[in-house]
């Protein structure tokens, strides 16, 4: 569809939120709690944060929750009976006030979960997902969306993208049919646009590196000594992967009691030593430098090659969450600078 531009003020925006919530949608909006901001289900409109730069966690758990029930089972001595879960009953979720980096990350997830195996539960959740984005008027030193082909006002992935103006009103860009249906159903809350320009208010995020050059260096630098240097500090936890909007590694766990149980899909991380440990005892990624290399390689070499996207939206969450200052932006800038001979 051809995008439309409207204006909505703050009072009307709260009304829109409450009306979508009252209509039975599960709202997923950012709230400040425990000294950080994170998305929560169905907060009151008054609880929603509009002042944060970035939430600690991403919004990927709307479609890829930290624990996903895949099916139930009941086993007796002779047989195992599988009880499928009716995925059609997943609720409609509206991600409210997600920054453009988060909105853009969904297309990467779509690609991963439909790459060869078409993931039924992921797609069931994704089809019911609506994204109301919010452009960034502020950024911090960890943000680098413009270095990965996105930006503080990027429309990718949003059904409606809001941009806060200096006068307290918001530009609402209606971008998809889904967004249009929401705008049409609540038409009285919007007013006509008067040529407001979002570029004037957007955060300034300088481009810090060329991702093409990073990818090229990664291709030629698999055996380079910088992996060891870069990763000595890394303690091998999963904080970076768990807050990342694109990291999708998972582990399968069965939980059962007296033969009855369920199979769960749980978040996992390639940073963990156990991640690639074989039953033989051999571990192809024996040390942390190999695991850290895998993390950057996957995002900036393998995914651009195989899935045609960069596995990073520049949200900076991993750098903020890292307990030991493994700053991904610093490392990507260093990687770009390296002079590595092409093979």
């Amino acid at each position: 569809m051809i995008p439309e531009k409207k204006i909505i003020d703050r009072v009307a925006l709260d009304k829109l939120y409450e009306s979508l919530k009252a209509a039975g949608n599960k709202m997923f909006a950012p709230v400040f709690r425990n000294e950080q901001t994170n998305f929560e289900y169905n907060p009151a409109a008054t609880e929603i944060s509009y002042s944060h730069i970035q939430t600690t966690q991403s919004v990927k758990n709307t479609v890829f929750p930290k624990i996903e029930n895949l099916f139930r089972f009941e086993s007796s001595q002779k047989s195992v009976e599988l009880v499928q879960i009716d995925f059609t009953k997943v609720p409609r979720v509206i991600v409210w006030n997600a920054h453009p980096c988060d909105a853009a990350a969904f297309s990467a997830l779509d690609s991963v979960f439909n790459w060869d195996y078409v993931d039924e539960i992921y797609n069931a959740r994704r089809e019911k997902l609506v994204v109301i984005g919010m452009s960034c008027i502020r950024a911090d030193e960890n943000c680098f969306c413009t270095s990965v082909d996105l930006g503080p006002g990027a429309v990718k992935g949003s059904d409606i993208l809001l941009t806060p103006l200096a006068n307290g009103k918001f530009i609402a860009e209606i971008l998809t049919d889904l967004g249009k249906s929401i705008a049409d159903e609540n038409a009285s809350l919007f007013t006509a646009s008067n040529g407001e320009n979002k570029e004037e208010v957007l955060a300034k995020v300088e481009k810090q590196f060329s991702h093409e050059k990073v990818t090229e260096n990664l291709k030629n630098g698999f055996e380079n000594s910088f992996w060891h240097e870069f990763s000595l500090r890394c303690i091998g936890c999963g904080a970076c992967a768990y807050v990342c909007p694109i990291c999708t590694c998972f582990d399968i766990q069965d939980e059962s009691k007296a033969g009855k149980g369920r199979r769960l899909r749980c978040w996992d991380s390639c940073g963990f030593g156990m991640f690639t440990l074989h039953t033989s005892g051999h571990n192809p990624r024996e040390v942390q430098s190999q695991r850290w290399r895998q993390r950057l390689m996957h995002k900036f070499s393998y995914q651009p090659d195989r899935n045609e996207f960069i596995g990073c939206v520049g949200c900076g969450r991993c750098s903020r969450a890292c307990p030991v200052d493994m700053n991904i932006l610093e490392q990507l800038v260093e990687l770009e600078k390296l002079e590595i001979a092409a093979k």
């Binding site: 930290k66 936890c237 904080a239 030991v324």
Partner: peptide
């Protein structure tokens, strides 16, 4: 309840 088991506590 909100722990997502990234095991940063253990790793640190």
């Amino acid at each position: 309840e909100r722990c997502f088991k990234c095991y940063a506590c253990r790793a640190a």
